[in-house]
Design a binder for these strands. Structure first.
Lengths: 149, 149
DNA sequence: GGTGTTACTATCAAATTGAAACTAACAATA
DNA sequence: TATTGTTAGTTTCAATTTGATAGTAACACC
């Protein structure tokens, strides 16, 4: 796979995965969206080893998905907040969840309701232009090196 | 994290990740959607070690995302085809790609065009009921153990 | 008989991960 | 003042996973 620092793969999926293709990172982002901000909250929620958590939080911070904020000077204490890039990961989380709900959905699952209408949220990916569900219309891949000198 | 065989985490994201939270698996699925079916095609496309590829293909097959089909009896040769569950992973791939395009998008990237309209496909996740983009309306999480005896 | 193709397996060093214990810097309590 | 608790980590080390390379099996083709 491509090196993390210099991923110039023309595939946008590979670009994403080069940074957060790891389960822990995605689960940390999930928990951050659920409102967790502190080291011990993540550690307890995930059952992750502190070494791993330290490293993953550092990576997510370096990559601009989380930002570290000092919330206490004495003693020095940091918390981790979602950045815009981190918040924009929510649709990805929902789509991963939608797939899991459909194909790995035995037993009780967490659900999300629209706060106004009270209906259960069912995430689907659509093309912003045509409005069609992704995968329901024929499409054409264009590689970036087409028609180059 | 939960054991792969007995994931009963009530979070649908964790359910998904228990099986394909690995970059190689996702890249294999990407290539499978691009039309690759054979061991050597995947190996060359990904630059993956054959040991890894063997294991990942086996897991994806066991988990029902790919199916093995014998395409030659003499010599015995197998290919790997997407199942329904595998095909339904396409929206997830598009959302991962959409995020990567926005936040890791320097340089030339592969694009997808609607074959009919010729417009570039831009995947967005919406709620199937309200049609609102995921994350733009307040929502409420419901855990499965609420109001239990 | 020799070369090429395809789908692997075997081997082993290197890197990553997980588990457990420990530390620093304080606050609160007795 | 001593003890306990909290938070955010670090240290250490064994176990697992990964990556790189080479090799194999079963053929087809020339």
């Amino acid at each position: 796979m491509d090196d993390e620092k210099t991923c110039n793969d023309p595939c946008p999926i590979a670009r994403s995965l080069a940074f957060l293709g790891d389960s822990w990172s995605i689960l940390i982002l999930r928990d951050a969206h659920a409102g967790l901000t502190r080291f011990d909250q993540f550690r307890k929620s995930l059952g992750i080893a502190p070494t791993m958590l330290t490293r993953r939080l550092a990576t997510l911070t370096e990559e601009g998905l989380l930002e570290k904020r000092r919330y206490s000077e004495h003693p020095p204490r940091e918390e981790y907040l979602l950045t815009d890039a981190g918040r924009d990961f929510l649709p990805v989380l929902f789509m991963i969840g939608a797939w899991g709900r459909q194909y790995r959905g035995g037993g009780k699952l967490v659900r999300f309701l629209d706060a106004e209408t009270g209906t259960e949220i069912k995430a689907v990916a659509v093309d912003e232009v045509t409005g069609a569900k992704i995968g329901t219309r024929p499409m054409r891949m264009v590689t970036p090196d087409e028609a180059e000198p």
